[in-house]
């Protein structure tokens, strides 16, 4: 409860700071650079949840622990949500700065593939009637999908050069303004906290739904 309240206050502080405390970065039309504080953490959470889902899937396959499957499913659902959010916000930014909503920039390509993987994951889950088998298949597919990710890192940047702003927007580069960096890191923390909180809620829902899951005999 305390944590939840702290998270909401922190989130509010970050939103206010993102608009009032920091200055808009040079070289971007108007105030568009402020997307950094929202879009990047969303993309980060989308990627993080993909990783969490894969690890939970592997755990499920090793231990056959229901909780691990709930974690894998919840992380996938949240990952999908944040993936959509990152795609939409990024698209709006792309329209404002590069002139069109969609350019097949390498990161746009990889996020589309991520969306497709999540879509396929849910399609698979809904198509297998037997609950035990459904969990195993979903876990296997999650691991399979994760294995192809390294190839995207090698393959996708070869097609076109990225339009993504790197230097002034990347915290590992020296070009970032210290104020921006502070708020950006704060926002990453806020989004990660939000993710953990939503993840726990979703897992509780799944556990309660699992209690009334049909028994073995219902499938014959």
């Amino acid at each position: 409860m305390i944590l939840k309240a702290m998270l909401s206050i922190w989130m509010a502080v970050i939103i206010v700071a993102a608009f009032l405390y920091t200055e808009a970065a040079v070289g971007f039309p108007g105030e568009t650079s402020r997307i950094l504080f929202f879009h990047v953490p969303q993309a980060w959470v989308a990627t993080l949840s993909f990783l969490v889902s894969m690890i939970a899937s592997a755990t499920y396959l090793a231990k056959r622990n229901l909780k691990a499957d709930y974690l894998a499913q919840s992380a996938a659902e949240l990952g999908f949500l944040f993936c959509v959010l990152a795609t939409v916000t990024g698209s709006i930014f792309a329209k404002a700065t590069w002139g069109s909503f969609w350019n097949w920039d390498p990161r746009e390509t990889s996020i589309v593939i991520l969306l497709m993987i999540y879509g396929a994951y849910f399609a698979l889950r809904s198509a297998v009637p037997d609950p035990e088998r459904k969990r195993v298949f979903a876990a296997v597919y999650s691991i399979l999908a994760f294995t192809t990710v390294p190839f995207l890192i090698f393959v996708v940047p070869r097609i076109t050069a990225s339009l993504h702003p790197e230097n002034t927007m990347n915290p590992t580069q020296p070009g970032m303004d210290p104020k921006t960096l502070k708020v950006f890191l704060g926002s990453l923390l806020a989004y990660t906290g939000l993710f953990v909180w939503m993840l726990r809620l979703k897992m509780r829902i799944l556990r309660l739904e699992g209690l009334k899951e049909p028994r073995f005999g219902d499938f014959i």
């Binding site: 593939i113 497709m116 993987i117 879509g119 396929a120 399609a123 698979l124 198509a127 297998v128 009637p129 088998r133 298949f137 296997v140 597919y141 399979l144 999908a145 192809t148 190839f151 995207l152 393959v155 996708v156 097609i159």
Partner: peptide, 27 residues
Amino acid sequence: AMIAQASARGALFSALSFPLLLPLMIT
């Protein structure tokens, strides 16, 4: 092997395989 044991096989096979094949196809 997975979709053979699921319902809606034909459509599901393409939907599941395509994301896995995309890096290969681009290459």
